[in-house]
Amino acid sequence: MFQPIDVSFYQQPTLELARSLLGKLLVKETELGTASGWIVETEAYIGPGDRAAHSFGNRRTRRTDVMFGPPGYVYTYVMHTHCLINVVSGESGHPEAVLIRALEPCTGIGLMYERRGPDKKLQALTNGPGKLTKALGIEKEDYGRSFFAPPLYIAEGKNIESIAAGPRIGIENSGEAKHYPWRYWAMGNPFVSRL
C-alpha cells in the first residue's frame, strides 16, 4: 500500500529529523486493517544534556534501552495510561528521540473512530500524542520495532510549506530545557495539538 522510507532518512541530526518528519505518513497495519496519518507536530529530545529527555545524564534503563541503539527504531512508553511513540534518533550510544505529537488522518478513519469513539470530532481523533497512538492501534508492545518495515512504519507523505517552532509541551519540571524551541508543527494545520 505505502512504501517505508529508507533507513538512511533517520541518520540526520535530531533537530533536522524532527522537522523532516513533518508531512511524512505514519502507518500501522493491524488485523483490523490499516490506519495512517500525516505527521503535523513533533518534539525533539536531545538525550544526555536535555533535562526533559528520559535519557538525561545518559540514564540507561529497560525503558530507555532502545534509544542507545541506532536511529529509526520505535521508542514507546506509557504516560498517564496513554502510550506515546517516539522515533529513535542520533547515532548509536547517543540516546536521542523525536516524539510524534499529532497527525492529520489519512487512511483508516473508520477504524480510528472505532478505537477513539464515534462521538469524536475528526480533529480530535489524532491531535495529541496519546490520541494518535490509540487511533492507529499503536501499543507499548511496538517498542523496539523498526520504522522502515511493516507493520509500523513511516512513508513519504506531503510537503509542509510553513513550519513553526516553539517550546515543548508538558515538561515544566525540566529547568532551562522547558524553554528550548524544539517543538515543530505545520503552521495552520487544524490537527496540531495546541498553539
Results as ranks from 00 to 15, higher is better:
residue 74 V to F: 08
residue 28 K to L: 09
residue 44 A to K: 03
residue 169 I to Y: 08
residue 60 R to S: 12
residue 59 R to M: 07
residue 107 T to G: 10
residue 21 L to A: 08
residue 89 S to N: 01
residue 57 G to F: 02
residue 166 G to Q: 04
residue 162 S to L: 13
residue 124 A to T: 13
residue 90 G to H: 00
residue 37 G to W: 01
residue 144 G to W: 03
residue 71 P to S: 13
residue 42 T to K: 02
residue 17 L to W: 03
residue 132 L to E: 01
residue 58 N to I: 05
residue 182 W to L: 10
residue 76 T to E: 10
residue 193 S to L: 01
residue 64 T to P: 02
residue 7 V to T: 11
residue 96 E to Q: 15
residue 176 E to S: 15
residue 166 G to W: 08
residue 95 P to I: 06
residue 181 P to I: 09
residue 176 E to G: 08
residue 144 G to V: 02
residue 99 L to P: 09
residue 85 I to H: 12
residue 63 R to V: 12
residue 195 L to W: 15
residue 87 V to T: 08
residue 128 G to V: 00
residue 127 N to S: 12
residue 54 H to Y: 09
residue 115 R to I: 14
residue 132 L to K: 04
residue 52 A to N: 05
residue 137 G to T: 09
residue 141 E to W: 10
residue 7 V to M: 01
residue 23 G to F: 11
residue 96 E to H: 09
residue 8 S to Q: 11
residue 36 S to Y: 03
residue 105 P to K: 04
residue 10 Y to I: 01
residue 43 E to P: 00
residue 31 E to Q: 09
residue 174 S to V: 05
residue 104 E to G: 05
residue 142 D to R: 08
residue 156 E to R: 05
residue 108 G to Y: 07
residue 75 Y to A: 00
residue 12 Q to N: 10
residue 194 R to Y: 15
residue 5 I to M: 14
residue 35 A to M: 03
residue 90 G to M: 00
residue 170 G to F: 04
residue 169 I to W: 06
residue 142 D to A: 04
residue 30 T to H: 01
residue 13 P to V: 06
residue 5 I to G: 11
residue 22 L to T: 00
residue 115 R to D: 10
residue 27 V to S: 02
residue 191 F to P: 03
residue 73 Y to S: 10
residue 162 S to I: 15
residue 75 Y to E: 10
residue 86 N to R: 02
residue 82 H to A: 10
residue 132 L to S: 02
residue 30 T to G: 01
residue 42 T to N: 04
residue 167 P to V: 02
residue 38 W to D: 12
residue 143 Y to K: 07
residue 93 G to R: 05
residue 149 A to H: 12
residue 23 G to Y: 07
residue 140 K to R: 13
residue 164 A to M: 11
residue 67 M to A: 06
residue 152 L to T: 01
residue 39 I to M: 02
residue 24 K to R: 12
residue 30 T to S: 00
residue 96 E to P: 00
residue 63 R to P: 07
residue 92 S to H: 13
residue 113 Y to T: 10
residue 80 H to Q: 00
residue 3 Q to R: 01
residue 112 M to H: 02
residue 180 Y to A: 10
residue 147 F to H: 05
residue 112 M to L: 05
residue 16 E to T: 15
residue 85 I to A: 14
residue 39 I to E: 09
residue 185 W to Y: 15
residue 151 P to M: 03
residue 72 G to R: 08
residue 139 E to K: 13
residue 94 H to Q: 15
residue 28 K to T: 10
residue 136 L to V: 01
residue 62 R to F: 12
residue 93 G to H: 04
residue 140 K to E: 11
residue 7 V to Q: 06
residue 134 K to N: 07
residue 95 P to V: 03
residue 10 Y to H: 04
residue 171 I to Q: 06
residue 157 G to L: 01
residue 76 T to D: 09
residue 124 A to M: 13
residue 194 R to I: 14
residue 58 N to A: 14
